[in-house]
Computed example of a mutant assay.
Amino acid sequence: MSFQKQVYMTQAPAVAGQLASVNPRHSALTVEGGFVAGPSGVTVGLFVWADATGRILSNTGTGLPTGVVARTEQALITTYLTEFGNTIPAGFAVGDVFSGVDIWVTNAGAGAVTVGQKGFAKLADGTISFAAAGATVAGSIETKFYAATAGAAGELVKMTDTI
């Protein structure tokens, strides 16, 4: 573990992928045996897509995503000498994939997020950005999720499927 390098005056509200409320959640439906991380693994707090079998998940895809992966102690730290990790390795079971949930995500967009903006899933890596409903975000698809809190680029935002 490395020496502490900075101190924040305010504690972060959460970590990407952490559930944001106890409101009802909707698990993504899977086939018998459950979801499994694909060859590149799956990153917690990002959108995922199931393959044609409905079993293998990836952070890349086409069309609407299957859901978003929640942070429920299912990721591993597998990189030598790293202090944290949010990756579920290839072949491991992926337990909590939600198609409806209140969850904290990192704003991967270039601009600030305002409450009520729609969530867009980037097809190349599952990252989440926000824009007005009906907008076009290059390489992304509009989802049913909304921003429930505001935040700048790179900051945590609470994302919900109900407003």
Score class of each variant (00 low, 15 high):
L76Y: 13
N23R: 15
D102K: 09
P39D: 10
A133V: 13
W49C: 04
V97T: 07
L19G: 00
G54M: 13
A133Q: 13
A124K: 11
I88W: 02
A147V: 08
S27C: 01
G109H: 08
V69N: 05
W104I: 01
K144M: 11
T79N: 15
G38Y: 05
K158A: 11
T79L: 15
V15G: 00
T160R: 12
G111E: 14
V94E: 04
V48I: 12
A138S: 15
N107W: 11
R25G: 01
D161N: 15
V97R: 03
A16T: 10
S40N: 12
T62D: 14
T62M: 12
E142Q: 13
L46E: 08
G95I: 00
G134Y: 08
T72V: 13
T43I: 11
D51G: 09
T10D: 13
I128D: 01
T143C: 05
S40V: 00
V94D: 06
K144D: 13
A150E: 14
L19E: 04
E142R: 00
S40H: 08
K5N: 10
Q117P: 02
G91W: 08
M159I: 04
V137L: 07
F145R: 02
G116Q: 10
Q6M: 11
N59G: 09
N23Q: 15
T136V: 15
A133P: 08
L76I: 09
A20K: 02
A37C: 07
G67S: 06
A20I: 01
A28K: 00
V113M: 06
P13F: 04
A153D: 10
